[in-house]
């Protein structure tokens, strides 16, 4: 192995992975620290996980985040999918360039600006800040990510499938729900997961648009860290890392299994 890989490559690999994962590994290790001091190791313990679940502030924040992420991801997926369909189907409507520009602008817009402008809007129309406003803000900025994911799937979608459905008597709406949507559904789910993750870890926009009683988990963690990092923060961060890791692994396993099965089916079909 060493002969073909070369010493330089191995060193580069180790350094690269260390750069990426050392901070996370440290965080995970110290979440099991007995000591109250974050940087001093005093033996293995799970006490911070226990105390985490009795910390009302953090638990409430986690619940708020989960609800915001679920609702905003769902609404953003519906809107983003609709935008993607409009952009791929109707290639020649007036103002298409403007429309696509406006859909995708939030991708490159600094979050601070998005957050600030939303804040100004909510203040101007006298919308009381809280759960609703954070959710709306998250829908706004995650919708374009969904649109990008779904649009790239739709570009490779064989339109004759939809035409075949209409040819067989389905109205355009029925054709979309019975044929197009089921076929592009994996992309829609990916879009939803992306929107969910984006909402889960957003701090900047939430800070601008949230109000009392709707503190999200990232906001809570950030404000606690300013008073000093506690091992509880390490514990909840480890849980988050765990959830995301499991999610990624499950998604890729499911994907791989489906691909293998499809490949095998095609091989047997070719032999018949």
């Amino acid at each position: 192995m060493a002969g073909t890989w070369g010493r330089f490559n191995i060193v580069a690999l180790i350094l690269g992975f260390a750069f990426l994962y050392l901070p996370i590994i440290l965080l995970v290790i110290y979440s099991f620290n007995e000591s109250r001091l974050v940087t001093v190791w005093a033996g293995f313990s799970t006490r911070w996980y226990v105390s985490l679940f009795s910390n009302r502030g953090l638990m409430d924040a986690a619940w708020v985040t989960a609800r915001v992420a679920f609702i905003s991801a769902t609404v953003a997926t519906v809107l983003g999918t609709m935008a993607a369909v409009a952009l791929t189907r109707y290639t020649r409507f007036r103002g298409r360039l403007l429309f696509s520009g406006m859909v995708f602008a939030p991708l490159v817009m600094p979050e601070v600006i998005t957050g600030l402008s939303l804040l100004l809007l909510f203040v101007a129309i006298g919308f009381e800040r809280g759960f609703m406003t954070v959710t709306l803000a998250h829908i706004t900025f995650s919708m374009c990510f969904v649109a990008v994911v779904v649009q790239s799937r739709l570009l490779s979608f064989d339109r004759s499938l939809e035409e075949a459905a209409m040819d067989l008597g389905a109205t355009p709406v029925k054709a979309f729900f019975q044929v197009t949507l089921p076929v592009i559904f994996p992309a829609v789910i990916s879009g939803w997961m992306l929107a969910f993750t984006l909402s889960l870890d957003d701090l900047v926009i939430a800070s601008f648009t949230s109000g009392p009683g709707a503190t999200t988990l990232p906001m809570r963690i950030y404000s606690q860290v300013r008073l000093g990092v506690t091992p509880e923060i390490n514990a909840i961060s480890t849980i988050l890392v765990g959830i995301v890791t499991i999610g990624v692994i499950v998604a890729s396993l499911v994907n791989k299994r489906r691909r293998v099965r499809q490949w095998r089916d095609e091989q047997t079909a070719a032999q018949i």
Binding site: D158, S160, L161, E163, A164, A165, V179, V183
Partner: peptide
């Protein structure tokens, strides 16, 4: 259809 357009 030329591509058959079967619903996958």
């Amino acid at each position: 259809f030329q591509s058959y357009a079967l619903f996958p």
